[in-house]
């Protein structure tokens, strides 16, 4: 299969003469375009609407009821949301989720972008290292939790033994200490997901035209300038994807915390998703749990819309 050869300098994103403007689209053309657009979206949207959208909409409805999974879902209006206002555990979970997100998001983006830039080069063994970087995401989460917990073990763990060689005094208790449990989880979270997002960045990096790099180099631009002025602008769609996904995944973080600390010690690492699980499937207050999920949804969508608008403005 031959690569399409299209006679157009604009393919490089370089300044180019504006293609001849066609007639202003008439309404029928607009309708036709909309129909074409819909035919593309429809196969996926049909499955998505039935399998995901309807249950999600039901979730919004249930957040206004006292549903306990088995019985009737009695309408209670905003009662669940009022309860959230005074629920201290919810506040703790909310705070912890923001704590996790505030560190996990920048760390993961930096680590995965760094890895992608490094492993996008023609290095000997790059293929092997790319596989290695992706491995944490593939490895069973139970094994991940077990090993990291052992590494973090305050008495027998290699990490504290290592730190102990340089600093005296009390060493961090990591997963069994109120103050250190969250940093421990953040470290493991970043470690686990950096390969995943590296993959997305790698795909994005392939769209950066090598000619642009060459041209910039000939103009005498240094590595840093090339990264800032060529790579980063070209990566913007990927950056948007990664930022949104990392943000959402951070706010939704669940299984990693469940297997590492179960939200403990005390409530030191209790996060929103786990609180939803606790309320919904340990205490069967699914109506209330749904209202927590709606709050989580609103936070994520709020952050995403801001990113979306920012991205649009940069595009314009």
């Amino acid at each position: 299969m031959a690569t399409p050869v299209v006679d157009n300098p604009g393919a490089l994103g370089l300044p180019h003469p504006v293609p001849p403007r066609r007639r202003a689209p008439r309404t029928s053309l607009k309708v036709r375009n909309a129909l074409v657009g819909w035919t593309f979206v429809l196969p996926n949207f049909a499955g998505f609407a039935v399998l995901t959208l309807i249950p999600v909409l039901l979730l919004f409805y249930y957040s206004l009821t006292s549903w306990n999974i088995f019985g009737n879902a009695d309408w209670v209006g905003l009662e669940n949301y009022q309860r959230l206002v005074g629920d201290r555990s919810f506040h703790i979970a909310l705070g912890n989720t923001f704590y996790y997100a505030a560190f996990h998001i920048p760390l993961t983006i930096a680590a995965s972008l760094g890895l992608a830039l490094l492993l996008n080069q023609k290095l000997r063994g790059a293929a092997f290292f790319r596989t290695v970087a992706f491995f944490p995401y593939v490895t069973s989460i139970v094994a991940v939790a077990v090993v990291w917990n052992m590494l973090f073990s305050p008495e027998f763990g290699p990490i504290n033994q290592f730190i102990g060689m340089f600093v005296g005094g009390e060493l961090p208790g990591w997963t069994v200490s109120k103050d250190w449990a969250m940093p421990a989880v953040i470290i493991v979270g970043t470690w686990r997901y950096m390969g995943y997002y590296m993959l997305l960045f790698l795909a994005g990096l392939q769209t950066v035209p090598t000619e642009l790099h060459e041209a910039a180099r000939i103009d005498g631009a240094g590595v840093w300038q090339r990264f800032w002025n060529v790579t980063l602008p070209c990566l913007r769609p990927t950056m948007f994807l990664v930022t949104v996904m990392v943000t959402i995944e951070s706010f939704k973080v669940f299984d990693l915390i469940l297997v590492m600390t179960e939200g403990g010690p005390g409530q030191a690492t209790l996060v929103l998703s786990q609180y939803i699980w606790q309320k919904g499937f340990e205490q069967f207050e699914l109506g209330y749990a749904s209202s927590v999920a709606v709050v989580l949804f609103l936070i994520c969508i709020g952050v995403t819309v801001v990113q979306f608008l920012y991205n649009k403005r940069r595009d314009a």
């Binding site: 909309a34 657009g37 999600v56 959402i248 669940f254 998703s273 749990a289 989580l296 969508i301």
Partner: peptide
Amino acid sequence: RFPGRDALFLLYIGTIAVPWASYMIP
């Protein structure tokens, strides 16, 4: 381009933000 394209797309992303556990029963 079609009307409501961006809104529909945000809806897609929005559902990613809902933890599966919270709607798995329905």
